[in-house]
Design a protein around this nucleic acid. Sequence first.
RNA 1: GGGCGUUUAGCUCAGUUGGUUAGAGCAUCUGCCUUACAAGCAGAGGGUCUGCGGUUCGAGUCCGUAAACGCCCACCA
Length: 805
Amino acid sequence: MLDKKYNAQEKEEKWLNYWKENKIYEFKPDQRKVFSIDTPPPTVNGKIHIGHIFSYSQTEMIARYKRLRGFNIFYPFGFDDNGLPSERLVEKEQGKKAHEIGREEFSKLCYETTDKYEAEFQELFSKMGVSTDWNIHYKTVSPSTIKISQSSFLDLINKGHCYHKESPALWCNECLTSIAQAELETKTIQTTFNYINFKTVETSEEFTIATTRPELLPAIVCVFVNPSDEVHNHLIGKTAHVPIINVEVPIMADEKVAIDKGTGVVMCCTFGDQTDIEWWKKYNLPLKYIFTDNGKIIDEVPNYGGLKIKEARKQIIEDLTDGGYVVKIKELEHEVQTHERCGKEVEYAVMNQWFIDTTSHKKDFLKIGEEIKWYPTHMRNRYDEWVNNIMWDWCISRQRYFGVPFPVWYCKTCGEPVFARVMDLPVNPLVDKPHIDSCKCGCTEFIPETDVMDTWATSSVTPLINMRYGEEENFESFLKPMSLRTNASEIIRTWDFYTIVKSFYHFGMRPWDNVMISGFAKASDGNKISKSKGNSKVEPLDIINEYSADVVRYWAGSGRLGTDINYSEETLLRGRKLVNKLWNVAKFIEMHLADYEEKEFETYEYIDKWILGKYQEMESGFIKYLDDYEVGLALNTLEKFFWNFCDNYIEIVKHRLYRLEEFGEVPRYSGQKTVYTLLYKLLQDFSIFFPFITEEIYQELYHDNKSIHLTQIDPLNFDFSNEIKNGDIMIDIISQARGEKTNNNVSLKTPIKHFELSVNEELADAINKSIKDFKATLTIQSLKMSQNDEVYKINNIELEIENQD
RNA sequence: GGGCGUUUAGCUCAGUUGGUUAGAGCAUCUGCCUUACAAGCAGAGGGUCUGCGGUUCGAGUCCGUAAACGCCCACCA
């Protein structure tokens, strides 16, 4: 017997244990077709917020749907614990910087900390009913994933897609590491536009350059004007004298100079921005690099050496002003590139870095983007746009401690890199020795690479991790490609793109068939949830405890795919209402199935045919939505049907179920069979969203399998279109009659003494076929029906109202 | 500045391929303890579908355009 009230806390725990003990979600290769899901390994950086719950739930629902459709679900969970986010977490917890702690000790702390948070993450995701097989979960710094990341690296080296080069790279002097273009975040800041007077050496003609970064004056290598700038183009070919610094640089022409920006004359420094780098490369300009790694001016620069960038800026403006070189200083609000992990402005540094070529195969990457089906389709535009606009190769080396080491040493004499052999992986060059004793040049000493790989360099190999790339026992046969990748739109340019890059280079093919992109969960104020804004006041655990995981999933599963949703108490309440209703209707149905036996049956009552037909109609839409990964729309459709089922069908059939003598055995059995069949199907459908309560009801009422989650959806195949049409009209009539009672302020059980109705022939037939149901539902004592051409018209309703004296 | 999306009831959102009177939930108001459910049931009020223009017999839906908001990117001289 189902309990009078459903206790979510207790039942959810019970079924979690049951699923675990009975290995309900275990993955084992068998004869079934595999549906594989490449789901984002969450960054283990402290806290999960409701945004995670949102997007992971939607993926999870797809896993459940596909399982119900008979697929063998390969759905491993991962944790992205390597790299800068983890390091920053540890630094924050320790209150110390990594270099103060020391490499070895720091790595140890990183492992311990990520382990701790991983356990918390796992518990929370479990609580949400994530149907993953935890036995095949992975983390991005374990020995086996390090091995795969390293062997991926070596494969790209062999194929010539990965190279080592001294080159300008984006540099964060807060995190003391190079970063990738994708890690940039734009921020608006207040600064000043400084107009500084220069002179030509040849004619001592004055001209003005406007700059936001006067501290780069010592790094100046050239001055540019636009050749079609009539005011300034006579300067081209002359030499500029740089104030204060007292150096002379050439004045050159380039079309990229915007005539209307600043004064139309630009100084080119190495490096202030990307254009500087382009010019530096294009015109083979000299390199004057004036910053240290941690954001100071190098000591070699007179007067300013040792100063921090901003101090130097202040100082140099003062000096320029004193020398009379400053024409004006204008307040300016402009946008700068910052490092997304720490928010600090980035600089450019010239050093040896490892790069993966992302710029010379754009066409191939676009072609793969075309081969993959994107859901919703417009998300592909974001991918295309990113690929088309990539300007840099992907810098994958990071001057950090915690991550996948490069399997590389360098010859001490000639600098030639020595790569580890695949058979020796995983290697840590700081500890392990290269497999050769001496370099070609004869030198026997090797210097280990100390850099580690960018975190995306590792997470971009999740399909490889999943397929156990390079292992003897692997899943390559059914994971090339994987069925589905899911993630939120913000990481299309990183995770999706990099995975495609790697898959193309390794296998020359797409990594997955389908990509499902979710939107964002936003705070209830409609803004993006972010720690810096502090607007994620809602803790996932709190709302699970308050509303149950099923109800939180309801919230997460609502809305259209790819569309942002707000955290909404209202939606949770609505979900709670729905779950509660499901429980109550199950109790009602259970009550009337005590004497039910499953047997062949054809002669359904009219109104039973109506609801079966309505279900079938809904079911085909439901399946279509889920096949398009539209979880929320599927839920919407299902919910709508369900309320109709409860409020209309159950209200009709209840009389037949209660009153055997009056209605007879066969009509009653028809009702029993209908509710038995439909509740089963409704439970299956709802199990995608509410895995817990549906299991509880299923186990109590049906129990023909170990779990509802191992059953299969078997779509109905009736032809009840006539019943659907006329049944709907009957519901309409019933609704109007109910309204009549309500408007007279009487209860719905108040009898209707006389009911006069004119209907067309078709509807008359329908009502006659369900006359007992119809009369019982409205408590009609006498019904008079006349034929008419219009569909129907209610001529008279006479209620039996007692005098209230 | 570019790309993509969003804009529908007071609030949160649905609305398949254009097709009668645009739908839910919450909130408001009015009834009803009805042999599953008062965390319920039955009703009512509430909308120039962001503005403008167009295609069409017919537009919330298609096209163009403007605005607001969101995400991503570019813009550091």
